[in-house]
Design a protein around this nucleic acid. Structure first.
Lengths: 264, 264
DNA sequence: AATCACTGGT
DNA sequence: ACCAGTGATT
């Protein structure tokens, strides 16, 4: 038996908003640790890794590990039926469950909605989620600022070069109408901690990425006030949004583009 | 070398909002006087004349006259990447520059964005901007009120007749669903000077104009609290928005429609 | 009043 | 997946 209750269904809703445009289907791997989803986008270019820890739930019970194979568009539809302040309870049988139940309860308890979502068998492709990598450059900034940067620059071109040097971090783009270059500096003294920008650099780093995927990644901004972007030469970029203090995270990975500079 | 810095990028942004729907491309003529843009709409029916005086800038340096040929949609895209309180600096080389640089600096100075916009050669068609004309009727009113009048009346018909007489100014429209007639009177005693309406009349004047272009003209309303509309029989109407005290202006010209009345 | 963020619709 | 309209916020 698997059963978990989350006070804020909107958290789950936002998680789905953060992945559904990129990934069609995935296994929600339930274990004592929590619920984990790892999947690649349709083009197998980028990877998303979601964890909702058991302790982030009001109630969490997982007798045996199980994988709930879900069409994300369907779950998203279901979650859109949750009210503003609804709590959500997820239930599934242990053995060969072919449905999962999602129950929404309004804050006042005067409305209960349940959905049974048909599960599917999904091959859990082996995904090489990079672990314990150290990065040569890390940028922490307000997630809305990151979203704005990507949205602005995407009007100019479809690849972005991120360069971290002692001068700060710069986002560079080139396209038909011209070039753009946006620089930000560390700002560790903003009034609100969530407005702060922290750029840490082991060594100067410059890599190029496909804008399209970074645009997908910014869909997770509503989950978190801040985002952390970690890069190193020739290894996948990580864009990480933490959920609550210890509730979980959404991490995206994206390999850099091979640029002419790399061939020299 | 041309270099100019304006404290409020939003002024430039609004100027572009005021012209880009009407005009596709134009030369920004830079001289010691300032930056001037004159262009006709795509149908060559109306004319827009923008001046940003050098003294309206925090810094203005123009060693030689030069014409920056710009696709207005592209510049508008770039300006939309400016933050709310950003300053903007425009730079171009003197000789055969094929790009212009637009640099935005956030108020706190912790974010700098630069764009290099590709320039193009644009034939400066000779535009007969009417000068030193005296008008038989002039209406000065709050720009939002003018915007509202045009927006309201445009739902009824596609031409508007403006009539200034000793009774005030009236805007008349006729269409399938009926007729509209909106009258305003001088009101020189409103608390806020910008709320005042001043109608001055040399002689009674009545002319008809295409609504479509007046609607374009109202896009400049965010630039100025007040608008001045000047008309005379059989010469182009002028709709003028001043920018700041002495920063510059946006003026639109539109020839009256030949109406049956004129043929009598 | 204007800008931004969010939601819902195409 | 994008856009536009609406609502909240400064």
């Amino acid at each position: 038996m698997f059963e978990a209750r989350m006070a804020q269904a909107t958290v789950l809703k936002r998680v789905l908003e953060a992945v559904k445009d990129m990934v069609n289907e995935g296994n929600f791997d339930c274990s004592e640790e929590g619920i984990c989803l790892q999947a690649m986008d349709v083009a197998h270019v980028s990877l998303v890794n979601v964890l909702l820890r058991g302790q982030g739930f009001e109630m969490f019970r997982c007798d045996r590990n199980l994988a709930l194979g879900i069409q994300l568009a369907n779950l998203s539809k279901v979650l859109n039926c949750a009210g503003k302040d609804d709590a959500v309870t997820i239930k599934a049988e242990d053995e060969g469950a072919d449905t999962a139940e999602f129950m929404f309860e309004s804050a006042k308890g005067d409305r209960i909605t349940t959905f049974e979502l048909t599960l599917m068998d999904i091959d859990s492709e082996h995904l090489g989620v990079p672990e314990d990598t150290t990065y040569t450059a890390v940028i922490k900034m307000p997630s809305n600022e990151f979203r704005r940067i990507i949205s602005d620059l995407s009007t100019i071109g479809d690849t972005v070069t991120i360069e971290v040097s002692k001068d700060g971090a710069s986002f560079q783009v080139a396209g038909d109408i011209g070039k753009g270059n946006l620089c930000i500096q560390s700002n560790t003294s903003a009034d609100k901690p969530s407005d702060r920008v922290e750029i840490t650099m082991e060594e100067p780093t410059k890599q190029t990425y496909a804008m399209r995927y970074l645009t997908f990644f910014t869909k997770a901004a509503p989950l978190s006030d801040t985002v952390t972007i970690s890069l190193s030469p020739d290894v996948p970029l990580v864009v990480e949004f933490n959920i609550g203090e210890e509730v979980g995270f959404v991490k995206y990975y994206l390999a850099p583009k091979i640029t002419e500079g790399d061939l020299e």
